[in-house]
Simulated assay, not measured.
Amino acid sequence: MTRHLGFILLSVFVSLVLALMPLPIAFEMYRPDLVLLVIMYWSIALPHRVNIGFAWMAGLIIDLALGSPLGVRSLTYSIVIYITASNYQKIRNFSVWQQAMLVALFLALYYLLVFWLNHFLLDIYFLPQYLWPVLTGALAWPWLFLLLRKYRRHFRIR
């Protein structure tokens, strides 16, 4: 039981490290939120293990690591994971490309909620470039999905 959770935590930790790894400034605005994508995968594949509480804790860690207002990503991760976990049976029946379109919608919701909360708290303004990670996240989803599915099947994570 705990072995399975350890493998899930390891994949989230790797995505957290990749999310915090510096990129050249020209590519920074295209970086998808890998932690959210990994948690979305696990909430669709294993909703009994990865749920809203898991997403809230991951969002809190991201908030602390990035120095953003505490609770913004916790709240937005929880909202997105609530939607994916409550509809996991429907999402599983879609092809990977259809799932990528849904993931793009979920990421757009996430980024718009993060913007709205940051606008409320920090008085920032919207720029269209703010939504580039939605496109890159949707393009990354099929590869991430196939990689994590292979990982889950290889280690028999249930």
Rank of each mutant, 00 (worst) to 15 (best):
R3W: 08
L5C: 03
I8D: 01
L10W: 07
L10P: 07
V12Y: 01
V14E: 07
V14L: 14
S15W: 06
L16P: 02
L18M: 14
L18K: 09
L20T: 11
M21I: 11
P22Y: 06
P22V: 10
A26V: 14
E28A: 14
E28S: 15
M29H: 11
Y30F: 15
P32C: 04
D33G: 06
D33H: 10
L36R: 10
V38N: 00
M40H: 03
M40Q: 01
Y41A: 00
A45S: 13
A45D: 01
P47S: 09
P47L: 04
H48R: 13
H48P: 02
N51C: 04
A55L: 03
A55K: 02
A55G: 07
W56E: 00
M57E: 03
G59I: 07
L60K: 00
I62G: 03
G71Q: 04
S74E: 08
S74Q: 12
T76I: 09
T76E: 06
V80I: 15
I81V: 14
Y82P: 00
I83M: 06
T84P: 00
A85T: 05
A85R: 03
N87K: 07
Y88G: 02
Y88V: 08
Q89D: 12
K90P: 00
I91K: 00
N93R: 13
F94E: 03
S95D: 12
Q98H: 08
Q99N: 05
A104I: 05
A104V: 08
L107K: 09
A108E: 10
A108Y: 06
Y110S: 12
L112G: 09
L113I: 14
V114T: 15
V114S: 12
L122G: 10
D123M: 09
D123S: 13
F126G: 10
P133S: 13
V134G: 06
T136R: 06
T136F: 02
T136Q: 04
G137V: 08
L139C: 07
W143I: 11
W143E: 04
F145A: 09
L146F: 11
L146Y: 11
L146C: 10
L147K: 04
L147W: 06
L148M: 12
R149Y: 08
K150T: 13
R158Y: 09
